[in-house]
Design a protein around this nucleic acid. Structure first.
Length: 276
DNA sequence: ACCCTCACCTGCACGC
DNA sequence: TGCGTGCAGGTGAGGG
């Protein structure tokens, strides 16, 4: 599920659902979700805290508390939040339960158990390992064409791999990296340092377009109305131009979309539209 | 410093 | 039906 746009949707939904609530108590049911704290420490750091705001840095969710701490959450592959009343039964893979003062429970579910939570002092937020190395927000002015060109010039990796590196370009995952490269009409195998100025410009525009389109829910967004998934906070499904479309015709030229493995991950591309 | 590979998990689709 | 295989949108440890 979650690359930057999906995380942004989760953040917006969470903000509406839990801002102003107080955390009465917390149940950490699977220790590896919060590896830096015991269940008791985790509960203690959050007990009684008022949720002031919910925000995002890259794919990290920041739940800001009034006790000078921030609950950092990364959904990784399958993490989800769901809001339940006190008498609804817990879904499967419910690993963390936050009991709120409105008699609801905010539940973190994660089938693959890859998701992570950490409570950080607000004063240490900027220097915390998870956040300190991240590239600039891709939709902010800091992610300028000049920044991207500098990053490209310094790297001899393939573009696809570079785009997945959160310390270089923030927010893309396997899907949006493929989609951005398709939009920019550049091969995922192109060597970063050899990308021309014009292609760098196209890539810069494509990254911003693919992310903002997904966030603002342009024509390609359709909300999944299925009962089960719509109860999860911030869930949606989309139409992809190349991702998971192996063998189907390219939306630009009709050539069959190809899939190959690059760095151990699937890469989808049009071999005609995306020449180096 | 940089970059690659693999491990971390469960579930699901597929072929035999 | 049942079993084995491969694959899944993310990261970070470990090693070259």
């Amino acid at each position: 599920m979650p690359e930057l746009p999906e995380v942004e949707h989760v953040v917006r939904a969470l903000r509406g659902a839990i801002t102003g609530r107080r955390i009465v108590t917390t149940e950490l049911r699977l220790a590896r979700i919060a590896p830096d704290a015991s269940a008791a420490q985790f509960r203690r750091k959050l007990r009684g805290a008022l949720i002031k705001n919910v925000s995002r840095r890259g794919k990290y969710i920041l739940i800001e508390l009034d006790n000078d701490r921030v609950l950092l959450t990364h959904l990784r592959m399958t993490g989800k939040f769901v809001s339940l009343t006190i008498d609804q039964i817990l879904p499967s893979h419910a690993h963390v339960v936050f009991y709120l003062d409105d008699d609801r429970r905010l539940v973190f579910c994660d089938m693959r158990q890859f998701g992570r939570m950490i409570v950080v002092a607000k004063s240490k937020l900027a220097t915390t390992r998870q956040l300190s190395e991240l590239a600039p927000e891709p939709l902010s002015d800091d992610f300028s064409l000049e920044y991207l060109r500098a990053i490209l010039a310094r790297s001899h990796r393939s573009l696809k791999q570079l785009l997945l590196d959160q310390t270089k370009v923030l927010g893309l995952g396997n899907i949006y990296a493929a989609e951005a490269l398709f939009l920019a009409r550049i091969s995922p195998f192109a060597v970063a340092s050899k990308v021309s100025k014009q292609r760098a410009l196209r890539l810069h525009e494509a990254i911003r377009k693919i992310l903002s389109e997904a966030i603002e829910g342009g024509s390609t967004l359709r909300i999944d109305l299925q009962e089960e998934t719509s109860s999860y906070i911030g869930t949606s499904e989309r139409f992809w131009r190349v991702y998971e479309r192996e063998g189907e015709p390219c939306v630009r030229c009709g050539t069959r979309i190809r899939r190959t493995v690059q760095g151990g991950r699937s890469t989808y591309f049009c071999s005609r539209c995306q020449r180096t």
